[in-house]
Design a protein around this nucleic acid. Sequence first.
DNA 1: GTGTTATAGTTTCAATTGAAACCAGTTGCA
DNA 2: TGCAACTGGTTTCAATTGAAACTATAACAC
Lengths: 153, 153
Amino acid sequence: MSTDRKRIPASAEHAPLELEHFLPYRLSILSNAISQSIADDYQRRYDLSVTEWRVMAVLARFDGLSAREVAERTLMDKVAVSRALARLVEAGRVTRGIHAGDKRRSVLGLSDAGWALHDEVAPMARAREREVLAKLDGEEQRWLTRILDRLMA
Amino acid sequence: MSTDRKRIPASAEHAPLELEHFLPYRLSILSNAISQSIADDYQRRYDLSVTEWRVMAVLARFDGLSAREVAERTLMDKVAVSRALARLVEAGRVTRGIHAGDKRRSVLGLSDAGWALHDEVAPMARAREREVLAKLDGEEQRWLTRILDRLMA
DNA sequence: GTGTTATAGTTTCAATTGAAACCAGTTGCA
DNA sequence: TGCAACTGGTTTCAATTGAAACTATAACAC
């Protein structure tokens, strides 16, 4: 019945979070490191931001999208897309038309210069991805795919 | 020998990147979604940013660190740490002394209020982590740990 | 000791970002 | 029609961030 019968070590009482074993923290560090290493490749060389590259990547696959559709596909918000598009159009990398039946919508696509840039950057991005995956063996790679699928479902 | 003997479909020629299967993109989306869902829990409620929380988390484990050591442990840059500390000290959540043998260094630690906050936020963060991991079975969880270890090595 | 270089931490200034307001065009409906 | 509500997209303003410059102290070379 002494007043300190509940005394336990401070470390146990407070149970501090161990960041280096904390999944969200680890994911954040890893993701930033990888994205940054890729971005470094093209950012300065081509004066192209990550958001701009993502916009170009979806336009390479889906020609004629509107800005809103680009935002949906990249999971970026419409303000970010609007700004990325402004720079891309200004740089002559993306063409912007007006939708026939709806004058609010834009009709977007890569220009020749945009395609040329895409064809330089896409292989670089893929090569970086391979470098990262090379740290894993085949079995680990398959598990990673499966795990990401489930976490993002 | 015709001029178009190399004609191949545009899609094959340009090989557009499929973002939704591109590891760096997937990691980035997943990581942001998870971090955001955790941050939403405490950000507004306690007026505590992610960087501030990370600083508190390392101080909970390693009392008496300097700002530079906090930066090392959190992988944040020293400017970000400096700003987070300014707010934390101002809010009375972190105490800042001066190192005995080196007047440049600060000696940091959680105040009582800091500990109280830590003891509220840490369980929330852990609960969120469990929610995320609950999407995986035990085997997947073990693989994920192993894969992250290897990718971050 | 003095001068030089390095380190801990802060400040400043510009660029980036986010939230809300905004404009123009469209839709629904009386 | 005509007007309210909605949608696509841009702009504005404030908050956040990053890079470089800066202050103060310490370590090193001589």
